[in-house]
Amino acid sequence: MVRVALILVSVVVLLLAVLWGYQRQLIYLPDTTAVTTSVGRDVELETSDGLRLGAWLVPGQQPARDVAVLVANGNGGNRAGRAPLARALSAQGLTVLLFDYRGYGGNEGSPSERGLARDVRAAQQYLVDSGVPADRIVYFGESLGAAVVTELATSEAPAGLVLRSPFVDLASVGQVHYPFLPVRLLLRDKFPLAEHLAAVKAPVSVVYGSDDSVVPSDQSRKVAEAAPTLKDVVEIPGADHNDAALVHGPEVVAAVVRLVEQL
Rank of each mutant, 00 (worst) to 15 (best):
residue 190 K to F: 06
residue 143 S to T: 05
residue 218 D to H: 12
residue 16 L to I: 03
residue 163 L to C: 05
residue 168 V to Y: 08
residue 13 V to D: 01
residue 189 D to Y: 12
residue 12 V to C: 06
residue 202 A to P: 09
residue 134 A to S: 12
residue 115 G to M: 08
residue 72 A to T: 11
residue 97 L to E: 00
residue 236 I to P: 01
residue 86 A to L: 09
residue 120 V to L: 11
residue 75 N to M: 15
residue 143 S to N: 04
residue 120 V to K: 04
residue 108 E to L: 15
residue 210 S to R: 13
residue 101 Y to E: 03
residue 215 V to A: 13
residue 235 E to K: 08
residue 103 G to R: 01
residue 76 G to I: 11
residue 116 L to E: 14
residue 43 V to K: 01
residue 200 V to P: 10
residue 220 S to L: 15
residue 158 P to Y: 07
residue 263 L to K: 04
residue 231 K to S: 13
residue 37 T to H: 06
residue 143 S to I: 04
residue 119 D to Y: 05
residue 180 F to E: 13
residue 199 A to S: 14
residue 228 P to Q: 03
residue 123 A to N: 12
residue 218 D to I: 07
residue 256 V to F: 07
residue 243 D to T: 11
residue 203 P to S: 02
residue 13 V to I: 14
residue 261 E to Y: 07
residue 39 V to N: 06
residue 126 Y to A: 08
residue 177 H to T: 03
residue 61 Q to K: 08
residue 50 G to C: 03
residue 166 P to G: 08
residue 175 Q to T: 12
residue 132 V to S: 10
residue 159 A to R: 11
residue 93 G to Y: 09
residue 169 D to K: 08
residue 177 H to W: 11
residue 200 V to R: 03
residue 68 A to W: 01
residue 234 V to K: 02
residue 209 G to A: 12
residue 33 T to D: 15
residue 135 D to T: 10
residue 171 A to I: 01
residue 158 P to H: 04
residue 207 V to E: 09
residue 201 K to G: 15
residue 158 P to L: 12
residue 252 V to L: 15
residue 85 L to K: 10
residue 203 P to E: 10
residue 129 D to M: 09
residue 191 F to S: 01
residue 14 L to V: 13
residue 111 P to S: 12
residue 76 G to M: 07
residue 38 S to V: 14
residue 169 D to N: 15
residue 107 N to S: 15
residue 233 V to Y: 03
residue 78 N to Y: 05
residue 42 D to Y: 00
residue 110 S to Y: 05
residue 118 R to F: 09
residue 75 N to Q: 14
residue 52 R to D: 06
residue 196 H to V: 02
residue 187 L to P: 06
residue 165 S to M: 06
residue 188 R to S: 13
residue 118 R to C: 01
residue 232 D to G: 04
residue 154 T to E: 03
residue 248 H to D: 15
residue 160 G to M: 05
residue 4 V to R: 10
residue 56 W to R: 14
residue 189 D to F: 06
residue 129 D to A: 13
residue 79 R to E: 12
residue 87 R to C: 05
residue 251 E to K: 12
residue 241 H to C: 10
